[in-house]
Simulated assay, not measured.
Amino acid sequence: MVTPDSPARKGRRPGRLGPLPWIAPAVLLILAVVLWPVYEMVRTSFLRVSTSGFVRGSAGLDKYRKLFGEADLGHVLLATVAWTAAVVALTMLLSLGLAQLFNQRFPGRRYARWALIAPWAASVLMTSIGFRWMLDRTAGVLNTALTDLGLVDGPRDWLGDPSTAWPWMVFVAVFVSLPFTTYTLLAGLQTVPGEVYEAARVDGASPWQAYRRITLPLLRPAFLVGLVINLINVFNSFPVIWGMTQGGPSSDTATSTVFMYQLKDTDIGESAAMSVVNFALVVLMVLAFLKVSRWNQEES
C-alpha cells in the first residue's frame, strides 16, 4: 500500500510538475522585465509625481484628462501612423526584393550578404547621430557636396524643417530595418523546395505565375513575422528620431514614443499616461493585424 508520505509517492511528485521546472526561469524573467514594469507604468499614470521623482498623492484620471487635452497630441498620433506605415511598407517592399536577389547565385553574394549586416550590427542611435552630422547645416558633408556641385544655392537646414526632416528619418529607419527583414524573408525563401519550381516549369507556368502562386503563398509565414516585428519596432522607434531631431522643433517631428519622453520633463504622471496609451495601441494594432491576416489559419 502506498501512503501519502511513502517514497514511491514522493518520487512521483516532481513528474507531476511537467515542464514547469524548465520554463520557470523564463516565466520569472518575463514577470521581472515585462509585467512588473507594465504594472508600475499603469500605477504611475494615476499618481502625482514631482519632476524629482517624489510621489505627491493620487491623481485619479487627471493625468489622462491632461494628456488628451494636449494641443500636440492629435498631430503626434497622425504623424506616428504615417511614420509607421511609410517605414514598414518601404522596408517590406525593399526587403522582399533584396531577399530575392540574395537567394540567387551571383559572384560576391557572400560579401554582399555580409555587407547587409552592417546597419544591423551598428548601434541605431550611433547611426542616427552619424546621419545628423552628415545633414548638419554648417559642417554637414551633404550641404558641402551639394553646394560645391551647384545643386543648391546655400546650406539647408535639413533637420530643422519638418518637411525635409521626416523623409530623412524615414530613410534612416528603413536603412536600419532592412537587414533583419531581408534575412527573415531570405530564410523563408530558402525553405521553398526547388522541385516545386521545376514542376511548375514543366506545367508551363511563367516566372511571374510561379512567383505569385508558389513563392508568395509559401513565403507568407516569414512575411507575417517580419511585418509584425517591424510594426512593433517602428511604432516604438525612439533612437532614430531622438538621435536626429529630438522630436523638434517643438513636437513637429515627434512620434508618440518621443512625445512621451518629452512629457517627462514637465509631468512624469502624464508621461506615464502616454506610455499606457502607447502600450494599448501596440496591443490593439497587433491583435487587429493578426485577426485580419488570419495568422492561425492555413492557406486554402
Rank of each mutant, 00 (worst) to 15 (best):
S256Q: 05
T257L: 07
T257C: 04
T257K: 00
T257P: 12
V258T: 05
F259K: 02
M260A: 03
M260F: 01
M260S: 05
Q262Y: 03
K264F: 07
K264Y: 04
D265E: 10
D265P: 07
D265N: 14
T266R: 15
T266Y: 13
T266A: 13
T266L: 08
D267L: 03
D267A: 10
D267E: 04
D267H: 12
I268S: 08
I268V: 15
I268L: 14
G269I: 01
G269D: 08
G269Y: 05
E270F: 00
E270W: 00
E270Q: 15
E270L: 06
S271I: 02
S271G: 14
A272E: 15
A272W: 08
A273W: 03
S275P: 04
S275A: 15
V276K: 04
V276E: 15
V277A: 09
N278R: 00
A280F: 02
A280I: 02
A280G: 08
L281Q: 08
L281W: 06
L281D: 11
L281M: 14
L281S: 14
V282G: 10
V283N: 07
V283A: 10
V283D: 01
L284H: 08
L284P: 07
L284I: 05
L284A: 15
M285T: 13
M285H: 10
V286Y: 11
V286C: 10
L287I: 01
L287W: 09
A288P: 02
A288E: 02
A288M: 06
A288S: 15
A288W: 01
F289I: 00
K291G: 15
